[in-house]
């Protein structure tokens, strides 16, 4: 009987050891990957979003988003809520740079770049949602940023959610009716 219990305990111990070794290897590998490529990835994403933005601006003829609070034109015929979100986070490499930056003080360029890219992505998704729903314009745009995990739990996912929303409006004689 006692042999079975010992066997189970040893089995659990071996499994935990394997998991630990795998995790260490995986974490190190991904951290190295992050150190080598994550800055490049963020830059590529920024370029891609800028391209999509340029395409949308060309389709609308101008930026469809604005944060004017009321309908300033009298010929609106339909309106409704439009929203888009993105969860975007810096890599552990960027967090480490940020940590060092915290000691020295001043602006932390890379974290700024990561959050800006996330925000550009969220607003671009809002434009694409507006285009999909056939709105001519989006009024009263708000952009909310919230941390995904509370600061009190440092071991959890480190990312921000950016949520953009506004009111889509359709105008008479715009061809979208």
């Amino acid at each position: 009987m006692s042999e079975i219990i010992v066997g189970i305990l040893v089995g659990i111990g071996i499994l935990l050891a394997i998991f630990g070794v795998l995790w260490t290897l995986l974490f190190t590998g991904m951290f190295v990957y992050a150190a080598l490529f994550s800055t490049k990835n963020v830059e590529n994403k920024g370029v891609e979003v800028a391209q999509r933005e340029a395409e949308t601006l060309q389709k609308f003829g101008r930026d469809p988003l604005s944060n004017i609070r009321k309908e300033y034109r009298q010929d609106g015929i339909d309106s409704g809520l439009v929203y888009a979100n993105v969860v975007y986070g810096p890599s552990y490499w960027h967090l480490m740079i940020g940590w060092f930056g915290n000691i020295v003080g001043g602006q932390i360029n890379i974290l700024h770049k990561v959050i800006s890219t996330g925000r550009a992505l969220a607003t671009q998704r809002l434009r694409e949602q507006a285009e999909l729903a056939g709105w001519d314009e989006v009024l009263n745009v708000r952009i909310d940023t919230s941390a995904l995990a509370p600061i009190s739990s440092p071991s959890r996912v480190k990312a921000v959610e950016i949520f953009a929303y506004g009111t889509g409006v359709k105008y008479k004689g715009s061809g979208n009716e």
Binding site: A34, N41, S91, L121
Partner: peptide, 8 residues
Amino acid sequence: NIVGGELT
């Protein structure tokens, strides 16, 4: 999250 970017 280690690599960074969007968490779909």
